[in-house]
């Protein structure tokens, strides 16, 4: 799962300190869609932007395990339990691939995790919303993973090789995530009145946060242009958001659900759906960590890391003793 909502690009002002010739050669390579690899020369701003973007992406995967994990022990059938566990496990795997991709830029996973736990690094705000009923698990797969896929597919061609390769693997694995969410909601749509009500309630709560996942409107996203030039980002926030709405509306109809937007209308002239204004104040509040479950999420991650410290240290001590025996 992923969002570019926080894709703040470091300003290029320190580009001034870069060797202009190297910088020009770099920009030309990237413009020609060549890949940049870990030991290649790259501008400092490019490196910093990537570390921030990839680690945010990794943090989002890891924190994203928690809202779904909330229903894992209560999944209503053995098959749903297995599917959900396999899915959450994938998110963990994706976080791992991404941390490793970011590590090739010279920042250790330890440092990145520390940045997350101390609040310096951000993760996708969508995970600061609570999962209140079982249909939320379907809505996360359908809407949140659906939005994420729109962001992620173009990133398979992103300019930084390790990031692009991680994204190829991630996209391949994620292809079942959206489908399982929709499948879960289809079962509810065929079910009892209570099950249908769960679905509608979930859609009501997840629709707007899902639209916010694409990030601020283009006119408020001043650094997008540079990210697009660097092939770190390949389509604008508003383009992707429109694509998502257009794809999702008919899917909601098939589920018999109503999208909670009175302004939603097919616009024959544009060939797209028009949709209502997004509450950006809420978005920025959640970005600031004022989401309803932000404290729970980050505390859970801090606790897991702190409670695991003795385990990591023990395994390292065991290996150190073994190595010492071999050396002796």
């Amino acid at each position: 799962m992923y969002t570019t909502e926080l894709g703040k690009v470091s300003p290029l002002q320190d580009g001034a300190q870069e060797d202009p010739e190297r910088l020009a050669a770099f920009e030309a390579r990237v413009a020609a869609d060549e890949f940049v690899e870990p030991k290649d020369w790259m501008p400092q701003a490019y490196r910093r932007t990537l570390v921030r973007q990839i680690s945010q992406h990794a943090h989002s995967e890891i924190v994203g395990m928690l809202p779904e994990g909330n229903w894992l022990t209560r999944a209503p059938s053995l098959q749903r339990k297995a599917i959900l566990l396999a899915k959450i496990q994938d998110e963990g795997g994706h976080g791992l691939y991404l941390y490793c991709a970011a590590e090739t830029l010279g920042t250790s996973r330890e440092e990145m995790i520390d940045a997350l736990h101390s609040g310096r690094a951000k993760y996708s705000t969508i995970f600061n919303y609570p999962t209140l009923n079982w249909a939320d698990i379907g809505a996360i797969g359908w809407l949140v993973d659906g939005a994420a896929i729109m962001n992620q597919v173009p990133l398979q061609r992103t300019s930084y090789g390790p990031y692009a390769r991680a994204m190829v693997r991630i996209c391949k694995e994620e292809s079942f995530h959206q489908r399982q969410g929709y499948d879960l909601l289809l079962a509810l749509a065929k079910g009892t009145a209570a099950q249908k009500a769960m679905s509608q309630d979930a859609l009501n709560r997840w629709w707007w946060p899902a639209l916010m996942m694409f990030g601020p409107p283009d006119e408020n996203s001043p650094n997008s242009a540079q990210s697009i030039r660097w092939r770190i980002k390949r389509e604008t926030n508003d383009q992707l958001r429109q694509k998502f709405v257009d794809a999702t509306v008919p899917q909601a109809e098939l589920l018999g659900l109503t999208i909670p937007d009175p302004d939603l209308n097919w616009n024959e002239q544009r060939g797209h759906y028009d949709f209502g204004a997004i509450e950006w104040d809420e978005f920025y509040a959640v970005v600031r960590g004022e989401g309803p479950t932000a404290k729970e999420r980050i505390t859970a991650r801090r606790d897991a890391w702190a409670n695991g410290a003795w385990v990591r240290e023990a395994a390292a001590a065991f290996e150190a003793k073994r190595a010492a025996r071999v050396a002796a």
Binding site: I62, I88, L96, Y99, G308, V311
Partner: peptide, 26 residues
């Protein structure tokens, strides 16, 4: 073992425990 999901000492261990749980549920 499902209760460990998201809370293990490292991500690698988290994935390992999930694999054990998936075997058992199967």
């Amino acid at each position: 073992l499902c209760e460990w999901c998201g809370h293990a000492p490292t991500i690698e261990v988290d994935l390992g425990l999930s694999n054990l749980a998936l075997d058992l549920i199967g």
